[in-house]
């Protein structure tokens, strides 16, 4: 696998339910192929119900029914034997979890047990994977909290005694105390105030540089991606529609949906009319045929309604799944619709 720490190959994960003889299938992840390099921050953007949470559930090896992996693989290389989490046994997953693969969760209030002190929560989560106990473990934790600018006294505090920013730093501390090679961060800063958000983001970035880990960073906020991600993948309705280095995605998007996401960002100092995308994200239980974006796409042609476009290279390190990728132009706010060339 060489340079890649994670390789995802044509991954399909569906929610399959069967009640009273009625079968229902939600195609949450539908053929995603991507990889994450070592020491890379890979941003995943997508709106709610686009399947991004299901995708990272698979990456985090938290595949529980009704979510089932139908096809494809997600293989990690942490030095030894590569682990494909879609087929790995619980023992194999236990061996990588927390030491190599960890997860920063979204709501810090619901992640931390409200009736246990922070120190005990650290023991619950990390003592066994790290193989440490007693004062050795405590010392390791205190040292690690120092990196996150948290005083050792937080170990004696209950979650409700900490501010939102401190709690989020504790969750980041929990996820990173084992110095993992691969971190999945699911909207880690969404619930935070602007000042605290920037602080927490820079902490995550510093930790990542220091430990040399890779991060898959999930958020729907494009301005966060602009500042933390090295590469960005855009997920729409269960499929990866575009993948590019951050700068390229913001300056020269090659999919109408990403062009829209970038153009709709308001900026201080600019009051020109921003476009709003009409329509709603499709239901994954009955996605539209062909390209799943075509009902909302200003560039859609007949071919888009019947044939799904493959994810093809459109530039260095840049892939887009659009039949008309060559016609997509970055939108100048205030001038017509997304991607419409004059």
């Amino acid at each position: 696998m060489g340079d890649n720490i994670l390789e995802v190959e044509a991954l399909k994960a569906y929610y399959q339910m069967s009640y009273f003889g009625v079968n229902r299938e939600v195609r949450a992840v539908d053929g995603i192929t991507m990889n994450v390099k070592r020491r890379e921050v890979y941003g995943i953007a997508g709106e709610s119900s686009s399947g991004k949470t299901s995708f990272i559930k698979v990456l985090a090896a938290a595949i529980r029914p009704p979510l089932r992996v139908i096809a494809g693989s997600a293989t990690y290389d942490f030095g030894g034997k590569p682990t494909d989490v879609t087929v790995a046994t619980p023992a194999e997953i236990d061996a990588i979890r927390w030491r190599h693969l960890s997860y920063i969760m979204q709501g810090s209030m619901s992640t931390l047990n409200p009736v246990r002190r922070i120190g005990r929560i650290f023991e619950d989560f990390a003592a066994r994977p790290l193989g440490l106990s007693g004062s050795a473990f405590r010392q390791r934790v205190v040292e690690h909290l120092g990196h996150l600018k948290l005083p050792p006294s937080v170990l004696n505090a209950y979650p409700h005694e900490l501010s939102g920013g401190m709690r989020q730093r504790v969750t980041i501390g929990l996820a990173t105390v084992g110095k993992p090679d691969f971190i999945i961060a699911d909207e880690p800063t969404t619930a935070l105030d602007v000042v605290v958000q920037k602080d927490v983001l820079s902490l995550i970035k510093n930790l990542q540089t220091e430990m040399g880990s890779s991060i898959v960073f999930v958020t729907h906020d494009m301005s966060v991606h602009a500042n933390i991600a090295d590469r960005i993948g855009i997920i729409y309705a269960g499929r990866l529609v575009e993948e590019a280095p951050t700068r390229a995605l913001f300056t020269a998007p090659k999919h109408p949906y990403s062009a829209h996401l970038v153009a709709s960002l308001p900026r201080i100092g600019d009051t020109t009319q921003r476009p709003a995308l009409e329509g709603r994200p499709p239901s994954l239980a009955a996605p539209p045929a062909g390209c799943r974006f075509h009902p909302r796409c200003p560039l859609a042609i007949d071919k888009c309604k019947t044939e799904a476009p493959p994810l093809l290279a459109v530039g260095p390190d840049h892939r887009s799944a659009c039949w008309r990728a060559a016609d997509v132009e970055p939108l100048v706010p205030g001038h017509g619709r997304v991607g419409v060339t004059a």
Binding site: V194, V195, Q197, K198, D199, L201, S202, K205, D221, M222, S223, V224, H225, A226, N227, I228, A229, D230, P245, T246, R247, L249, F250, T251, V262, L265, R267, I268
Partner: peptide, 16 residues
Amino acid sequence: SVLSADDAGAGNLKPA
């Protein structure tokens, strides 16, 4: 503290 997308990819995260 507002994250700007103007210099996307530059990794401008220095807290004020």
